[in-house]
């Protein structure tokens, strides 16, 4: 494993820890999209089915189990925790997830490496992950003045994607025969969505700064 891949995994892990700590410490999930969290749970469950039949390494297994349990933990907080669930922005978090899930199902059935249950589910999870952040980004744009921890979460997720691109480049040049088109194209789309968001984020941040200047 190269340094980019490891740093990417660690930023991904940190993003989830930051989100959980924010929810636990502030007893609030304001600005967090439950729809995105549910999509991530679907992504992790459909991708990590291989936990049952392939063993890659202890690291790999531990990380997969962490991603699955932490995503369900966040969903539990947002849906069932007595105090946290009341802070959920239900009226603002209205993105229609079917618009993301249905096209991903069709695409996974059409474009995959092998037409088998496990392989199609794996491909579906790759496609869905690339767009799963959209409800969160839209919510963040609607409720712009949320605490910085929510933006830190989104920022760390973006950093994880950027590091994974460096990891793919590194592996492409160092490992003969290393190639995975489905992962590369979805990952690039995912990073592009983040870049678009960061552009908007910086622009409105600067606008807010200018507005708050004393006259």
């Amino acid at each position: 494993m190269n340094i980019f891949r490891f740093a990417g995994d660690m930023t991904h892990l940190c993003s989830i820890v930051v989100l959980l700590l924010k929810i636990e410490a502030t007893k609030s999930c304001a600005g967090v999209s439950l729809r995105t969290q549910e999509l991530y749970a679907v992504v992790f469950v459909s991708r990590y089915l291989d936990l049952f039949f392939t063993f890659i390494s202890v690291y790999n297994t531990v990380m997969k189990v962490f991603f699955i349990t932490s995503s369900f933990c966040i969903i539990w907080y947002m849906r069932h925790h007595r105090i946290v669930s009341q802070t959920y922005d239900r009226e603002q978090d209205t993105f229609r997830v079917a618009f993301l899930v249905v096209p991903c199902i069709f695409l996974a059935l059409l474009v995959n490496h092998e037409f088998s249950m496990v392989e199609v589910l794996w491909t579906f999870s790759i496609y869905l992950e690339s767009v799963a952040i959209l409800p969160q980004l839209i919510l963040l744009q609607r409720t712009f003045n949320v605490d910085t921890l929510t933006s830190n979460y989104v920022f760390l997720l973006g950093a994880y994607r950027a590091l994974y691109i460096l990891n793919w480049l590194y592996r492409y040049f160092t490992e003969p025969g290393y190639s995975q088109w489905i992962v590369w194209s979805s990952g690039t789309l995912q990073t592009a969505i983040y870049c678009d968001f960061f552009y908007y984020y910086v622009v409105s941040w600067r606008k807010n700064e200018r507005l708050s200047l004393p006259s």
Binding site: D9, H12, I56, M63, S116, W122, R171, G177, Q180
Partner: peptide, 10 residues
């Protein structure tokens, strides 16, 4: 085929 794919990433 699927078994040629690198699936050690998360």
């Amino acid at each position: 085929a699927a078994d040629e794919l690198v699936k050690d990433e998360l």
